[in-house]
Design a protein around this nucleic acid. Structure first.
Length: 584
RNA sequence: CGGGGCGUAGCGCAGCUUGGUAGCGCGCACGGUUCGGGACCGUGAGGUCGGAGGUUCGAAUCCUCUCGCCCCGACCA
């Protein structure tokens, strides 16, 4: 027996006077975005180094809430949780080739004997190794295994608090199937599961087409949490379900908007000093000239070749689209020297007319009549450049989609959003199982490669993502399912009565299974209100002498500006009703 | 890795240009007054001025190197 130790319920209750919630008034100077500022100010997290954070008790409670939702939905989908090591021998990544491919992002460690190890940035290899050792028969499939744990990436630039860390918590799941079709079925099931998870977290998000990046794979989708502070740009159609990361988005073709009826003018070379950018070119020609009347010509190195990419002046080139079209891993913008060598002119005066190499032009670029383009001679531009007459090119969609572009699916208007990548799901196929010889025997006794999928959720990142979507000037406004406490009971005034009554209410709420914080600190009302708003607890019950006389307490939702009086006897019921209402 | 900024008390900052031995606000401790939206008065504790080297009688301040953090870009499941 532990004498004299106060027992408190596990999930439910906490007295503020005993809680470790170090709030601060001033904005820490290293933080710029709302979630970062608020997590530090409200005492949810502290920084230890760039991209390395401590989660304090409140932050940990939120993390556990998110994890719990993820576990419930993952388990419901038939996936099973396991734990894999974080500290890994280098052999597995060497076997898959990622020891080299990952480069400096992989945090490498040598042990005392000089053996090469690393901290896991992700676990495809390790799980594939487990699978090849343990899966032998189609009868063991399908199988979906997941884990929630720390991952490490030596990011070139950690930033934005928990949004981009070097150490972070991730849920990832790996599915194993007998065939591509079965793998796609697993993928679809995960997609549904992710919808449930993101909805329960109270997030506004879009599922978007995405680049599958270094992981490879035939299909992938990102779950992008919409936030002005997000790192990714996505386009989405409001009329249909098309949505894509701008990395891979295509703009649909507008129906002959540009006057194809305009007569082509005579090609004319114009001396245009100091016009290296499109802005400067437009400024030089002045008058009615707009960026859309010009062609932007960019020289790219693709493998051993140099190609000229042409987009309309007001458009941005999409390097991923260009690389895909050229079927290379990546394209690099040519250096000044390379441009001079290939074209004999300076950057800013390059153009398609007379270019003696491969030209890739965007459909919108070739549609421009009487365009202005570089003359491949310094310092000159051509006027009245027309595709077909003055230059030829391979036409391919290589520009970034932008706000107002037509949707490639339905033709309606695309809108641009910023997003935080909260989850990413992939069909991997046999990429890893082939490399690592992970096979099983099918019904006919034939050996076949396991067909895999992988599914990540940036769990710690989502804490910040939720705050980005749910805050105001005063502080955080947690959605009920992830709030560290559901109700804060705030006794006001120096008398005994409010604290005594508040304590009763606190105990009643706890008994009713509601998670409560009792602000029993001997602070002035203003301090308590400010802290309650900052912490973001969804429901506040204020117990003051004023109300006690009339037998009422005050109930205020964090998202409301007005409070309501409720009878003391009814406090628990009213709180529960308010929470239910907030949950929707 | 390129460009920019910042390191002085727990937090936010001044002092540096023109060297002379460190200050303000918040927070913290104690006493008193106050008590429905970050109160007030008084007293007090707290600093290797990021680190190393140099110049100088003397360095937070000038010089060199270095480490860390933030922002923009490059990069990025």
């Amino acid at each position: 027996m532990l004498e004299g130790v106060e027992r408190v319920p596990y999930m439910g209750a906490m007295r503020y006077s005993r809680a470790f919630i170090p709030t601060v008034k001033e904005v820490p100077k290293e933080a710029t975005m709302p979630s970062h500022v608020l997590m530090l100010r409200a005492g949810y997290a502290r920084m230890v180094g760039a991209g390395i954070y401590e989660l304090l008790p409140l932050g940990t409670r939120v993390l556990h809430k998110i994890e719990r939702i993820i576990r419930e939905e993952m388990d419901a989908s038939g996936a099973q949780e396991l734990l894999m090591p974080t500290f890994l021998p280098g052999d597995y990544f060497k076997e898959s080739g990622r020891w080299d491919v990952y480069g400096p992002t992989l945090l490498r460690i040598k042990d005392r004997k000089g053996g090469e190890y690393h901290l896991a940035p992700t676990h495809e290899e390790i799980i594939t190794d487990l699978a090849r050792r343990e899966i032998r028969s189609y009868k063991q499939l399908p199988l979906n295994l997941y884990q929630i744990q720390l991952k490490y990436r030596d990011e070139p630039r950690p930033r934005a608090g928990l949004l981009r860390c070097r150490e972070f918590i991730m849920k990832d799941a790996y599915s194993f199937d007998v065939s591509e079709e079965a793998a796609v079925a697993s993928y679809d099931r995960m997609r549904d599961t992710y919808h449930r998870i993101f909805r329960r977290l109270g997030l506004e998000y879009r599922v978007v087409e995405a680049d599958s990046g270094a992981i490879g794979g035939s299909q992938s989708a990102e779950f992008q949490v919409l936030a002005q502070t997000g790192e990714d740009w996505i386009v989405a159609c409001d009329a249909c379900d098309y949505a894509a990361n701008v990395e891979v988005a295509h703009a649909g073709r507008a129906a002959a908007e540009q006057g194809e009826t305009i007569d082509p003018g005579e090609l004319e070379k114009v001396e245009t000093p100091d016009t290296r950018s499109i802005e400067e070119v437009v400024g030089f020609f002045g008058g009615e000239t707009t960026k859309a009347d010009t062609l932007k010509s960019l020289l790219y190195v693709a493998g051993d070749d140099i190609v000229l990419a042409v987009v309309r002046g007001d458009h941005e080139l999409n390097e991923i689209s260009l690389a895909r079209y050229l079927d290379v891993d990546e394209v690099l913008l040519a250096s000044d020297a390379a441009v001079r060598e290939a074209t004999g002119t300076e950057i800013g005066f390059v153009g398609p007319v007379g270019f003696k190499g491969r030209i890739i032009a965007d459909p919108d670029a070739v549609a421009v009549r009487n365009a202005i383009a570089g003359a491949s001679e310094t310092p000159f531009h051509y006027k009245n450049v027309n595709y077909g007459r003055d230059f030829e090119a391979e036409v391919a969609s290589i520009r970034q989609a932008a706000s107002g572009d037509p949707c490639p699916k339905c033709g309606e208007r695309l809108e641009l959003y910023r997003g935080i990548e909260g989850g990413h799901i992939f069909v991997l196929g046999t990429h890893y199982s082939d490399k690592m010889n992970a096979t099983f025997l099918d019904e006919e006794g034939k050996s076949r490669s396991l067909v895999m999928g992988c599914y990540g959720i940036g769990v710690s990142r989502l804490i910040a993502a939720v705050i980005e979507q749910h805050h105001d000037e005063q502080g955080i406004r947690w959605p009920v399912p992830v709030a560290p406490y559901e109700v804060i009971v705030t006794p006001i005034g120096k008398d005994e009565a409010p604290l005594a009554k508040a304590t009763e209410i606190y105990e009643a709420l706890t008994a009713a299974g509601i998670e409560v914080l009792l602000d029993d600190r001997p602070e002035r009302p203003g301090v308590k209100f400010k802290d309650a708003d900052l912490l973001g607890i969804p429901v506040r019950l204020t117990v003051g002498a004023r109300g006690l006389k009339q037998g009422t307490v005050e109930l205020k939702k964090r998202t409301d500006t007005e409070s309501t009086e409720v009878p003391i006897a009814d406090a628990t019921g009213a709180a529960r009703a308010a929470l239910d209402e907030l949950r929707g």
